[in-house]
C-alpha cells in the first residue's frame, strides 16, 4: 500500500515536471515575436502602438500551449494524487 502510494506521488510529480517541458515552445515563439516587433519598431518608430498591441496579442496566443501544460501540471500536483489515492483505497478494500 505504501509502495503504491509512493509510486503514485512520485509519478505525479514526474509527470508534472515532464509536462512543463512544453514551456520551451512558447518561450521560443514569443522570443521570435518580440524580436521581430523590436525590429519593426526600429524600422518604423511611428507605428509603435500598433506593433506593440499586435505583439501582445500574438504573445497571448502563443502562450496558450504553455498554459495548457501548466494547467495539466497543476492538476497533476494538486488534484491527481488525491483522486488516485482514493481509487487505490477503494480497490484495496
Amino acid at each position: 500500500m505504501e509502495l503504491a502510494l509512493g509510486i503514485i506521488l512520485g509519478c505525479c510529480a514526474l509527470g508534472a515536471g515532464i509536462a512543463m517541458i512544453a514551456g520551451i515552445g512558447p518561450a521560443i515563439g514569443e522570443g521570435y515575436a518580440v524580436a521581430k516587433s523590436c525590429e519593426a519598431v526600429g524600422r518604423q518608430p511611428e507605428a509603435k502602438g500598433d506593433v506593440t498591441s499586435t505583439m501582445i496579442m500574438g504573445c497571448a496566443i502563443a502562450e496558450t500551449t504553455g498554459l495548457y501544460a501548466l494547467v495539466i501540471a497543476i492538476l497533476l500536483i494538486f488534484v491527481a494524487p488525491g483522486s488516485f489515492a482514493n481509487i487505490l483505497k477503494e480497490t484495496v478494500k
Binding site: E63, T64, L67
Partner: peptide, 10 residues
C-alpha cells in the same frame, strides 16, 4: 478560459 486562469493562478 485557460489563458486567463493559468496566468493568474501561476
Amino acid at each position: 478560459a485557460f489563458r486567463h486562469y493559468g496566468n493568474v493562478m501561476s
